[in-house]
Every structure is written in C-alpha cells, then in structure tokens.
Design a protein around this nucleic acid. Sequence first.
DNA 1: ATACCCTATATCAGTATTGATATAGACGCC
DNA 2: GGCGTCTATATCAATACTGATATAGGGTAT
Lengths: 187, 187
Amino acid sequence: MIPLSYALLGLLARAPRSGYDLLQLMEEPMGFFWSARRSQIYPELARLEAAGLARHTVVPQRDRPAKKLYEPTEAGLAALREWVETPQAPAPDRDIFLVQVYSLWLVAPARALELTRACERRHAARLERYEAIRQRQREEDGDPSALRLDSPRFASWATLQRGLEYERGYLAWLRWLADAIAAQMAP
Amino acid sequence: MIPLSYALLGLLARAPRSGYDLLQLMEEPMGFFWSARRSQIYPELARLEAAGLARHTVVPQRDRPAKKLYEPTEAGLAALREWVETPQAPAPDRDIFLVQVYSLWLVAPARALELTRACERRHAARLERYEAIRQRQREEDGDPSALRLDSPRFASWATLQRGLEYERGYLAWLRWLADAIAAQMAP
DNA sequence: ATACCCTATATCAGTATTGATATAGACGCC
DNA sequence: GGCGTCTATATCAATACTGATATAGGGTAT
C-alpha cells in the first residue's frame, strides 16, 4: 500500500464514494496535500478491493450513468487506523519555484521580479480559495474550536488550518523577495 | 528536460561538480526543495551531456578514485537561464503527515498526540539544521541584505530564508495542533 | 439529427523515481 | 593479508505516476 491508498481510504472512511467522486475530492480538499490522476485512482480502487480493504456496489442513477460506490471494509478501516498512528517517512519536498530561485542570479532583475509576482498571484489565488472554504466550514460547523477530536470535521479543520498558514507564509516570503529585488532595481 | 535537469544545471552553474558531489548537494541544500537518488543522478548527467547541455573531464586524484567533473556548456547555461525565467507549473503538494491528520479522528487522542510530537521533533531538528546553515552563511557573507542580486549567494540566501520560514510555520501549526488535542484530553 | 458537455469507468504507453546491487580505487586498522 | 569505510560511477528491475485515448449513458442546445 502506498500513501495514495490511505488517502483514498481516508476519504471513503468519511462517506462512500465513486471513483469519479474521489477524482473531484482529489482536486479539493485532498489535493492540497496529496493528489493523483484518473489513471491512478481507478486502478488503485481495484487494488484496494483485491486486497480486501474496500468493496463496491453498483448504483444505478436516473439522470446519469450508473456508478460504483466504494466503501472501506472492516479490514480497510483497521489498516487505515494502523497506518495513521504509525510515523511515516516524509515524502521528499518538491518546490519548483525554489529550484528557479536557486538560479535566479542568472536572469535580469526585471524578469526575476515578474516571475516572483506571477508566483505571488498563484499563491494569493490559492489563499483566497482556502479562505472561502474556511468561510463555508464556519457556516456549517460553527465555532471550529468546539469540534470533537473524534469528528472528521476536526480533522478537516486542522488540515485546512495548515493550508491557510502555508499560503500566508509563502506569500509573506514572496513579498519579501519581491521587495529585495525591487530595492536593487530602483537606486 | 525535467525539473531535476535544471536543479543539477543550477548546481553546476555555480561550480563544476562530480556526480558524487551532486549527490551530497542533493542532501543539502538542494534537497530542501528538490531531491533525487544516485540512480537518477548519474543517468541524468549522461542525458545532459548527450543533449549538449553539460560536459565532463576526468580528474585523477592522489588519495581517492578519479572523478568526472561536470560543468554546463554554453547551451546548458542558456537553457537554464531560459527555464528559470519561464513560469513553471508547480509540482503537486505532497505532505504525508497531513494525509495522516485527515484521518486523525479515527485514532485515540493519546496516539494522535504522540504522532504530532514525533512530527514536531522532526521539524524542530530540521529548523536547527537550517539555522546552523544561516549562521555559517552569515559568517561567510556578512550582512545578507547587502548581497547582490546577480550573486549566487543571494539566491542561496533567498531559498534558505524560505526554508526557515517554512519550518517555523510548520512548527507553529504542530504546536497549535498538539494543544488542541491536549485540551480535549485533560478535562 | 448531431454536436457538445457532464458523468462515469477504464486502459495503455511512456516516463520518473525508487531500492537494490555491482564494481573498484584508496585509505586506515588490526 | 583481511576487513571496514569512504569515494566514485553505474546498472537493473520494479513501481509510481503522467498524459493520451477509448467507451458510453444521459442531458441540453442548435
């Protein structure tokens, strides 16, 4: 089992889902810290089923094609629980913008500034998205600090919180970088 | 060319290196935002060379085996410069601890707290490492804000700065999470 | 009707990446 | 001489992952 297996089981543990559902959830909110494509998700569901960790039932629908609703088996829930409480080796950090920044000394300051601003826009957009989710979550759950530890809502809130702080920190750094570049261009 | 190609070129653009050197640099500092194993680095160097972006010379050494010193060609430097000033699609975010947190509601609070503390120790260790590097960098370069934009030292400083803030932010969130868990255990 | 979009599942070829293993020179230790 | 360790390069099989493509049911618009 790979991390993706447990990401999917983690979604299924909250509610039964189809592959197509999971695909959407891989965009948001799971995609904020783990992601996969169609071509990985469908085979992975088959793998989970073959391993006895998930099962599915075909659900016909009136206005759309039938879907396969997946849910974790008892064994699947147990495997998830066990994996979650075992410290995992972190996935390697990969930040392509930092690879660029590492060689930023090679390009003209004006270009470097543009690049930084472009990155800033991307992260600002992401932060807005997170804040919209937080808004929605607040409306649904009320005071988040009242959430019970054994509720999925608490877990969702905790990961969202990290997403928010990540983007805020990234933005602050990007602004610092932009300032540092701009400061050397003007005088 | 893949991101790794430009990560390696970015290192070679600063100083000629052997595959073995690059391997160490992939631990620190490049590994903080991009990484690769031996088995990917050596073939990748061959690929860069085949593409005319790098070349090597064999350098015999007195007290150790001979090494192949690589350096970027003119074409390699140009390719790097061009890639750096082109906005890149971000690599998917992957944080295995957040995958765990997403299903943290399934495990006993005491276990959840342990897990969080373990993660905290890892990130605290990382932060210390970064701060040691900053210390060293300060001793070598003096006031970092005086660094010229077109100097590799500036680029190194900028990426290190991001690493420091990332770890500080992560630690703050971990402490917040630990407190939230602990608060529900005591009363 | 037929063209287009959304839901839904699936497969394939190719590439990126990992983990294990092999080889070898040079050093120091016992 | 034999052993372990560090430097140094290389390859292999297996797996993870991407991007493209296929199929098909049902809706709506033209």
